[in-house]
């Protein structure tokens, strides 16, 4: 049953950056784009399961902090070796300064 979960305050994420969020034992990454839109993906890279939240966010791309696998964080699309599998994305919404993500 999908449900909306409060992940963080909008101010918790700097523009063009990412933070981690855990819910029910799962890690998620919450992104804020330069134009203040919010996105969410699985918290782990699909390559070696490194946590993505220590990675660099630039130009709509999150880069794995370990092996530089790159994903479009808005779509989850893997952008080339070493990552071969897209990262899962989750819907987000902002209400009263809180970022919510919809988890399954």
């Amino acid at each position: 049953m999908p449900q909306w979960i409060a992940a963080c305050a909008t101010d918790d994420v700097d523009p063009e950056d990412v933070i981690s969020f855990e819910h029910a034992g799962n890690a998620y990454a919450v992104y804020r784009s330069p134009d203040d839109a919010f996105f969410a993906t699985d918290g782990h890279c699909t390559h070696e399961r490194e946590l993505l939240c220590d990675g660099l966010v630039m130009g709509g791309v999150i880069e794995c902090p370990k092996h530089n696998g790159r994903f479009d964080y808005t779509s989850g699309k893997a952008l080339g070796a070493p990552v071969l599998v897209d990262v899962r994305t989750y819907p987000t919404k902002v209400e009263d300064g809180t970022v919510y993500i919809e988890v399954p």
């Binding site: 490194e50 990675g55 370990k66």
Partner: peptide
């Protein structure tokens, strides 16, 4: 520890 320096080194 872990990937703590990754972002800074990448920049």
């Amino acid at each position: 520890t872990g990937t703590a320096v990754a972002k800074d080194v990448r920049i």
